[in-house]
Amino acid sequence: MQQDVLNKVRDIILDVIEIEREKITPEASLRDDLHADSLASVEIVMALEDEFGIEIDEQLARSLATVGELIAAIQTMRNAAAAQEATT
């Protein structure tokens, strides 16, 4: 599942940033390694929200430093949404 999310995250980042696919690893720093400046990060966040049906608020987005943290946040939000759905 994590690989699945990583692949989708890679596709979305590649859509906005000129970088080699293999550089987008869980350890990669969004700013320092992928050079995601603020405008690029806005595009990426909007695309992730559309792809995964989640809402990444600004405070959370600002606190994310690596691709791995981004994936963890996405999975946590998806799991929380699924759990909520199951209990209602």
Binding site: L30, R31, D32, A36, S38, S41, V42, E58, L64, A65
Partner: peptide, 10 residues
């Protein structure tokens, strides 16, 4: 960053 970007570069 003045808004929701990814974490600041050191």
């Amino acid at each position: 960053s003045t808004r929701g970007g990814f974490a600041d570069k050191p």
